Computed example of a mutant assay.
Amino acid sequence: MLRTVNATRYVLPLREGGSLPAIVEADDLGLYVVKFRGAGQGTLALVAELIAGEIGRALGLSVPELVFIHIDVTLSRNEPDAEIRHLLKASAGLNLALDYLPGSTMFDPAARDAASPAEASLAVWFDAFTQNVDRTPRNANLLVWHRKLYCIDHGAALFFHHNWPTMPQKVESPFAEIKDHVLLPWASQIEAASAIAHDRLTSQVLSEIIHQVPDEWLEAAGSDLSAADKRAAYLDFFTRRLAASSIFEQEAIRAHARLI
């Protein structure tokens, strides 16, 4: 279960992309990279971040700890930047944060032995499964910390939930975008990654992850579906996509073969 902390100090904005994340200190004295519900991408980005991130962790990939972080509207009082002040006010309530990894560096695909075949294959499988389009050489969303590779920023995954009627068609998508994955050159063990995934992603594991998403995030995202209906739909999607995984696995294997 995700822990809940309270924000005590806005430390530093990270002006990257449309989510306007920031480093924030919490009442456990930890530093976190916060994804704000009041940012332009809304609560769906937080839902994707939570579900995909915890699926990655369940698979055995390194993902910074995710926590719920409560933002009090008073946090904005002493903020001189009007844009940040507005963001903090719009994000009052429950938000999502990742453990800040001090001293981490961005993944460099040009580095020698940048990723092991086993780890790269599992990451490629994971991103194809969650349909994450945002792990490319242009924007790797991978950090190296203490010589370990960490997967971050999954807000662009699960894009089917922006248009629920398309969900049934996305279940068996081969995910052609996998050809642009930054770790694809090292992903020579997709079949082994598949065996690991099928062993670890049980219905119980997936259900427990999905049920951690707060009702208020699901309800704030709109559509005629209730929070309970959306949870059932997410579980249905992942259960069916796992059963049809050979479709996107073969796409990844073919894409890898074209690189070598």
Rank of each mutant, 00 (worst) to 15 (best):
L31W: 12
V33Y: 00
R241D: 07
A221R: 05
T166P: 04
A233L: 13
A52G: 10
H256T: 01
W125V: 00
R112S: 15
T43F: 01
G60E: 10
V67L: 07
A227Y: 00
A120I: 14
V24G: 09
A118R: 15
P102R: 11
V34W: 07
F175M: 05
V133R: 00
D236I: 08
Y150H: 14
G17L: 05
F175A: 03
A220F: 07
D134E: 06
R147H: 14
H146L: 01
H181D: 01
V182C: 14
T8R: 12
G18V: 03
S226H: 02
E25D: 06
P174E: 08
W217S: 10
A82L: 10
G38P: 06
A156F: 09
F248L: 03
T130D: 06
E177M: 08
L44T: 10
R85A: 02
Q41W: 07
L61G: 03
E65C: 01
L20H: 02
A176W: 06
L98V: 00
A58R: 05
K179F: 03
D72L: 06
D134C: 11
R147N: 15
N6P: 04
E25I: 01
A232E: 14
A26G: 08
A118F: 00
V67N: 05
L88R: 03
A110R: 15
V34E: 03
A111M: 15
A157H: 00
K230H: 09
L201Y: 06
Q169F: 13
V33P: 03
L149R: 15
T130M: 06
G18I: 04
M106K: 02
D153Q: 06
L20T: 04
G56Q: 01
P21A: 06
S104P: 14
E249P: 04
L225E: 02
V171D: 11
S188F: 10
A243P: 04
D28F: 02
L142D: 13
P214R: 12
R231N: 11
D27V: 00
E219L: 02
A128E: 11
A90Q: 10
A252D: 10
A114K: 15
E191P: 04
P102K: 09
E216L: 00
A140F: 11
R37C: 08
D27S: 05
Q204G: 11
L143W: 02
R57M: 02
V5M: 00
A7S: 06
E83M: 09
A228S: 14
A140C: 14
H211M: 12
H70F: 03
R3K: 15
E16Q: 14
W145K: 12
I178V: 15
L259T: 08
H256C: 06
V47M: 04
S226W: 02
H198V: 03
R3E: 13
L235M: 11
G103P: 12
D99T: 07
D199P: 03
L94V: 02
D229E: 15
Y234A: 09
A128G: 14
Q204I: 03
G155N: 11
A82N: 06
A156R: 09
L61D: 03
V73T: 11
T4P: 02
S121F: 13
A197C: 08
K148F: 11
A192N: 10
W125A: 01
R112L: 15
R254C: 05
S207K: 13
E208A: 08
A176K: 08
P137D: 04
F238R: 03
V73N: 08
E251L: 06
H70Y: 09
I253H: 04
D99S: 13
I210H: 10
Y100T: 06
